[in-house]
């Protein structure tokens, strides 16, 4: 099962290698990982999506907590949280297909960010359901390239609020 884990870490050199290294040396695999500063510049947040059963997930959480520079680890899955991913999709689009694609993209409130004689690049932001639906739809036209940011997520309410 996919789990979205939110990890607060010290914003220091070497932290990413400690986290990434933990996953590789213990044989856990990462679906996606996104990192950025939080409102406190000394703290960064990593959002990590992993595919793991309960036992492995428990180990991942415990091993993450054991890292000295990790401040807090939370499994958001199952709780109330917002998640988003941004994906750029380059679609094969000669002049004939173009209007059809534009229409499809519109219904999903995705955007066209670049147009070439042979292709169109679509930007879509959303949760997993939406992204999958858009990808499914565009696959029919022929996808040339995909770039994804990896998922970021935020709990709707903090525990102490």
């Amino acid at each position: 099962m996919k789990h979205t884990i939110s990890v607060l870490v010290e914003n220091k050199a070497g932290v990413l290698s400690h986290v990434a290294g933990l996953f590789s040396s213990r044989g856990f695999s990462i679906d996606s990982l996104a990192v950025g500063e939080t409102s406190d510049p000394t703290v960064s947040r990593m959002t990590i999506v992993v595919d793991a059963d309960e036992r492995i997930l428990e180990q991942i959480m415990k091993q993450l907590r054991k890292l000295i520079d990790v401040i807090k680890v939370q499994d958001l899955t199952g709780g109330d949280f917002i998640d988003r991913e941004l994906v750029l999709i380059k679609v094969d689009a000669g002049p004939k297909k173009r209007s059809e694609i534009m229409q499809a993209v519109d219904t999903f409130r995705a955007r066209i960010v670049d147009v070439n004689p042979k292709s169109i690049t679509v930007e879509v932001t959303g949760d997993r359901g939406k992204i999958n639906a858009v990808l499914e739809l565009l696959r029919g036209f022929g996808i040339k390239e995909i770039v994804r940011t990896g998922r970021i997520a935020m709990a709707r309410r903090n525990k102490n609020q």
Partner: peptide, 16 residues
């Protein structure tokens, strides 16, 4: 050496 010893230390530092 901090890269090499990452998996075999409790923690390590490169002092800058």
């Amino acid at each position: 050496i901090t890269g090499i010893t990452r998996p075999i230390t409790k923690h390590n530092y490169l002092v800058k």
